Amino acid sequence: MESNKVWFVTGASKGLGLTLVKQLLEKGYSVAATSRSLNQLEEAVGAHSNFLPLAMDLQNEASVAEAITKTIGHFGSVDVVVNNAGYGLAGSLEELTDAEARQNFDVNVFGSLNVIRSVMPHLRKQGSGHIFNIASIGGFTGSFPGFGIYCATKFAVHGFTESLAAEIKGFGIKATVVSPGYFRTNFLAADSLSTPQNELAAYAEVREIQAAHQNQINGNQPGDPEKAANAMITVAEAENAPVHLFLGQDAYDLAYQKMGAVTKDLESWRSVGTTTGFAKEMA
Rank of each mutant, 00 (worst) to 15 (best):
E2Q: 12
N4C: 02
N4F: 08
K5I: 03
V6I: 14
V6E: 03
V6M: 03
W7H: 07
V9G: 05
T10E: 07
A12M: 01
K14W: 03
K22S: 11
E26T: 14
Y29I: 02
S37L: 11
E42T: 14
N50V: 02
F51K: 07
L52V: 00
L54Q: 03
A62H: 04
V64W: 07
K70R: 10
G73Y: 00
H74S: 10
H74Y: 12
F75E: 08
G76Y: 03
V78N: 00
V80F: 02
N83Y: 14
N83V: 01
Y87T: 01
G88T: 04
A90F: 15
G91R: 14
L93I: 15
E94H: 06
E95Y: 09
T97I: 12
E100C: 06
Q103I: 08
N104M: 09
N104L: 12
V107M: 09
N108R: 11
N108A: 12
F110Y: 11
I116H: 02
S118N: 02
V119M: 02
M120F: 00
K125F: 02
K125L: 14
Q126T: 06
G127N: 01
G127F: 01
S128M: 02
G129Q: 10
G129T: 10
I131P: 02
I137C: 08
G139R: 13
G139E: 06
F140E: 14
G142P: 07
G142C: 10
P145L: 12
G146E: 04
F147V: 12
Y150F: 10
A152D: 04
T153P: 08
T153F: 04
A156S: 15
A156T: 13
V157G: 03
V157F: 05
F160R: 07
T161Q: 01
E162F: 11
L164T: 00
E167C: 12
G170F: 01
I173Y: 04
A175V: 06
T176L: 05
V177A: 14
G181I: 07
Y182N: 14
F183W: 13
R184I: 00
F187G: 03
L188A: 14
A189N: 09
A189P: 03
A189C: 07
D191F: 01
P196R: 13
A201I: 14
A204I: 15
E205K: 13
V206E: 11
Q210S: 07
Q210D: 04
A212H: 15
I217A: 08
G219K: 12
G219N: 09
G219Q: 05
N220Y: 08
N220G: 06
D224L: 14
P225K: 13
A228W: 05
A229D: 07
N230Q: 15
A238E: 09
A238W: 03
E239Q: 13
H244A: 04
L245K: 12
L245D: 10
L245E: 11
Q249I: 13
D250N: 03
L254F: 13
A255E: 11
G260R: 01
K264W: 05
K264E: 05
L266T: 10
R270C: 02
R270M: 08
G273K: 13
T274E: 08
G277L: 10
F278Q: 08
E281F: 13
A283T: 15
A283R: 15
